[in-house]
Design a protein around this nucleic acid. Sequence first.
DNA 1: ATAGACCTTCCAACAATGGGAAGGTCAAGG
DNA 2: CCTTGACCTTCCCATTGTTGGAAGGTCTAT
Lengths: 136, 136
Amino acid sequence: MNIGQASSASGVSAKMIRYYESIGLFRPPSRTDSNYRVYGADEVHVLRFIKRARTLGFSVEETATLLSLWEDKSRASAEVKDIATRHISALETKISELQGMVNTLKHLAHCCGGDNRPDCPILDDLAGETIATKGH
Amino acid sequence: MNIGQASSASGVSAKMIRYYESIGLFRPPSRTDSNYRVYGADEVHVLRFIKRARTLGFSVEETATLLSLWEDKSRASAEVKDIATRHISALETKISELQGMVNTLKHLAHCCGGDNRPDCPILDDLAGETIATKGH
DNA sequence: ATAGACCTTCCAACAATGGGAAGGTCAAGG
DNA sequence: CCTTGACCTTCCCATTGTTGGAAGGTCTAT
């Protein structure tokens, strides 16, 4: 299996496979005589693990930790749960920040006529002029 | 007012003021004989506008558009509302992505003992092994 | 005069990914 | 045998927004 096949089998682009290798997340595979990378089912399995962790929003660094815990058969699940729990908190913080932005913008957009007149509460807010209607 | 004072008055770091200037978001101010940037109340007002837009999650590019609409006294509020509405959609998409991650992770963390035993549904999921209990 | 708190420009780094150039390799078909 | 096209290799650059630092100039107060 060369890098292209490993890529389609894992869903990780060839570019990213090389990148993960270069930063030490992914062990360098053996090479053919002509210097092509050669992968087997095990490597694809690891790539899929990485892919899934990234899809769940873990950073590359967190993914590296999870990977080493995965490969350590005697690790305690507490450590993994801890990483996951902290990650959940970080995601929830991010979500409420975004939700705050949405709430403010929805309020502003609701107050904005969206017509051809130049009166625009959105711009007024951005410019620091407070709007009267705050309730809702 | 030099850059440091404009920075504390606006909440935008001196670094970022220079950066915004360099990318054309913010008009270059006049300089003293000794080449120091000089700002007035108007500039601080613009910086605050920028700061607020960035806080609301608008990209620098969107901020530039909003800024030009703000400075164009005859613009239609429809255009602003359109930008805001599209931005709201983008934020909501992002939120539901993150929420999906949280849901999955919470389910996995809930199934994970978090003890000293190596059985860990989180790692099993990352590794591609499906868990039996899907309900919740 | 000198210290220290400013300012200036320029360069690099972060995270994670994509794009592309320049060149080597392999398999199929003429 | 040779060409063509689809691979592969390494290397560098761009992105987005922000921060850090170095090397040097300026201003203010003692």
